[in-house]
Write a protein that binds this DNA or RNA. Sequence first.
RNA 1: UCCCCGCUAGCUCAAUCGGUAGAGCACCCGGCUGUUAACCGGGUUGUUGUAGGUUCGAGUCCUACGCGGGGAGCCA
Length: 502
Amino acid sequence: MPIATTIAELARHVGQTVTLSGWLYNSRSSGKLLFLVVRDGTGLCQCVLEKTAVSPEAFEAARRLGQESALRVTGAVRADERSVGGHELAVSEVEVVQSAAGYPITPKAHGIDFLMKNRHLWFRSQRQWAILRVRHTIVDGIRRYFNDHGFILIDTPIFAPAAGEGAQTLFAVDYFGEPVYLAQTGQLYVEAAMMAHRKVYCFGPTFRAEKSKTRRHLTEFWMVEPEIAYADLDDVCALAEDFVYELVQRVLRERRMELELLGRDLARLEAIQKPFHRITYSQAADILRSGQTRTTFEADLERAKARVEELKRLIAEKEAERGAAGIKEWKADKLAQEILDAREELADQEEAVRNIPTHMELAANFEWGGDLGGSDETIIARLHDRPVFVTHYPRGCKAFYMKRNADDPRVVNNLDLLAPEGYGEIIGGSQREDDLDALLERIKEDGMNPADYEWYLDLRRYGTVPHGGFGLGVERTVAWICGLKHIRETIPFARMMGRIYP
RNA sequence: UCCCCGCUAGCUCAAUCGGUAGAGCACCCGGCUGUUAACCGGGUUGUUGUAGGUUCGAGUCCUACGCGGGGAGCCA
């Protein structure tokens, strides 16, 4: 009897006859030899079928199987360097569970619109498979971290009442005739629970109606928000630092294979060590206006310009080569793909050439009091090899609940954590304003109605203490750890402006 | 809301100055005993996003709209 097993377990079965159950990822035929690349959810395995090993009918049936056909394959396991995963199966039997034809996602190149429309199938492709496995480990790592550190999980509501300002970035829902909104944070609720349990967190989906079409935005994304009592800004930073560090360590430990498959530069992740860098907003402003920033941007611009010229030359050369007489078809095909890749990079580089002067100007003319823009964050992060905390923002550009700084009333005790390599803000948080009068003042200042916040104000009336917390965006964290260009691949079914299918 | 780019076969893309719409892949037929997006030979595939306009003639030029991509603002 063959042993039923999975591809991940093959190393334990070398020399034995096993049965794999999975789907046909790709197949290549060589006359009397057939290579079936099978995936089973745990990995890929090349199954080699020799014509003489089975009946002519069985060989013919296997040869005609379409991509993603469901099948069971039985054969002897052997180690082979030439095979994906290092093991292969010398097939003695193929059982077709379902014969599939016309699978849309071929092993060739596809555009992003097509792939997103076929997201339900795209999961099966190697890169997507690896990304969602890393996401799983990050999500599990988040839960594990807080559960192991004495935090109590508090599920906060998704329907939120109309709350003063900011309603334009919220999704309105009809709630028995009343307009309510999909929550964009659980923070206020988690503060209430923190007063009961000391250390709490909420973890769930959150919704933003921002009309942002960028590689960093989703309209529905997951956020974890811890909140701790008897804590000041330093305590919140220390928590965020240890938490992010542990997440990275966990992924490096458990998902090395997936990161390698994604082509992630592991050295960049291994460089994530404590302590993270810490600068204040005012120091960030000085950095932005400094010669170092100017020089960095100028170097970037020169590099981008040089790359544009290089790519143009490269494309012209390849096009000439492709058009040359007597060229082999496979060679022309390869060149065509290289030209497409080069053009894509060219578009990116040309965009950089257009944008950098604007970014330079924004940085050079940065005025104390404004919020840091995307390009500003990028330059700050680029000058550091570890995540960097930016603290003490002007209170004018931050939310009403953030604690005013005792020494400098112009700023609040908040923190943003910028991921390295230009991945931007993955954490935003603060010490909270625990003084009733100060909080009331800020609510009025923002033109909101204190009556809407009565329950929240109660938290300051009855046993208020210094406390704080932060929110970490799961998808941005996954994008950073996986080294992905776009956030849409970090969540199973991305919800973005103008995209709701499937 | 604003700025830039794109839309041609099921998929990825060509199409010179405005002059008969074409490759590769997928699919079908045949060949090949170590392939790695296999390869080689043959075959099938079109309302060029939509609506107007200019022109003897529009995939190509103009206008509007739609959809998608990237960015600004805003944000995790």
